[in-house]
Nucleic acid binder design. Structure first.
Lengths: 242, 242
DNA sequence: TGAGAAGGTAGACAACTGTCTACACGCGAT
DNA sequence: ATCGCGTGTAGACAGTTGTCTACCTTCTCA
């Protein structure tokens, strides 16, 4: 057997697949659910023959899965980058190594600023890729069990990424792994939920942004206190008793 | 003009409307979105002539709106009752009047127990009326803007109810109204979201329940600390410094 | 009593749907 | 040279859909 090189062929052909996926994304963004798409309508929008659909997908569910997979791949790394970017813009490199017990106030400020920055960047990202988020949130609770399951996994991955990053960047060193993942899951869920409001109600963007910020800070604070590190945190927040 | 009394007529007739609504609920619960329902399919399921649909609704959207309205009315008061029930089962009536500053620990325990009880009752309620929640969560992010808007309002009402109850029952007297509503909105969103997991993954119910509980406590705690009442709360949680 | 509104039925229409079989083109490998 | 494969097209099929007009029954109220 000699080495295969199907890549060249692939780049030349397979326009149909792309066209169909783009058409699906366009139609779903305009208020439709993927399963509600007719495959003829889809082909029409893509400028293709209805039968071409069968060359690439056996189902509309399969189309949906492919789109979801692609979107997940496209979003995941950028979202991680956003967090890194936010953390670095906030933490002066020379202070990175300081233990949080030595300076809880600094640590608190650090985490708060970093999350605020991340939230901001996240919403910017949402505004730039609205279709991806609309489709994701819609199908997460949509009619197709297959797509629901796939998106559940995507959300879980996002949450795990977030927990990993928080741990690696040492933003919340006082939280154990399990709690961290729970908090990250909640934040991830809420963020996606709020992203819909953010897209659909442009006039309320500032309020939504503020609400998201407050939510994250509340969760971090609540988790910290409940994990028994409340005293240090409160001392940092309320330096002097009245 | 004499007084009209169309009520008698209404009770006798209008079976068709009920049948259609029930059919819609049955079909949507089995993994479909309301807009994806054909009105013929609907009539078939209801055992009626397709045209009967037009006698009661002009649209499928209108059907959806009617169902949503009915569900909201059916759920809203029971949910409030759950909270009252939980609060009363926890607060001994003779202690109801004690100010929280005088005994923050008692107050904290009270609020925590009451919310835990409410969460438990809520999930029981979800398990008993799964179809209502499935439809609600699905259409909240579904394809029809009309239904989305209607469900947004329903959710907002639920959150407002919750905030009102917390205030009236004096469970979190240290939080101002705005913060309370924000927290209640988040809890409401998360609860509905988690209710889907609760329905679809019966084997994980204990874990989901625990997660919901933890979330509520975290939010309450976080909000309290951030509103400047952290010292009292922490002193209640950590009676003695190590 | 009898007009008419409300609820339900029947039949028909064009339009659209998913899917099948058959055909055509371009490519790389044998 | 040609086989086979990936991709795209064409035409046709039965089944389903939303909607229209028309007709029938039952109840109410004036």
């Amino acid at each position: 057997m000699t080495a295969r090189k199907p890549s060249l062929t692939k780049t030349v052909a397979a326009q149909g697949k792309r066209l169909l996926m783009d058409a699906a994304l366009k139609l779903t963004a305009q208020s439709r659910s993927i399963n509600a798409l007719g495959l003829r309508e889809l082909a029409r929008e893509a400028g293709l023959n209805p039968n071409t659909f069968y060359r690439h997908f056996k189902d509309i569910d399969e189309l949906g899965l492919t789109i979801i997979e692609e979107m997940s791949n496209k979003l995941r790394q950028p979202l991680r980058d956003l967090r890194r970017q936010a953390a670095e813009s906030v933490v002066p490199p020379e202070l990175a190594g300081i233990g949080w017990e030595e300076n809880p106030l600094l640590n608190l400020q650090k985490a708060t600023l970093a999350t605020k920055e991340t939230v901001k960047l996240f919403f910017d990202y949402v505004a730039q890729n609205p279709n991806a988020f609309i489709l994701g949130v819609r199908e997460l609770h949509g009619a197709s069990p297959l797509l629901r399951q796939a998106l559940r996994k995507v959300m879980a991955d996002f949450a795990q990424d977030m927990a990993d990053d928080i741990k690696q960047l040492k933003l919340l060193p006082m939280l154990d792994d399990v709690t961290l993942l729970e908090v990250a899951s909640t934040i991830s869920r809420e963020m996606f939920q709020l992203s819909m409001d953010y897209i659909e109600q442009p006039e309320q963007r500032n309020a939504i942004f503020a609400q998201a910020e407050a939510l994250v800070v509340m969760l971090f604070t609540g988790a910290t206190v409940l994990k028994g590190h409340g005293r240090l945190l409160v001392q940092a927040l309320e330096p002097l008793p009245a």
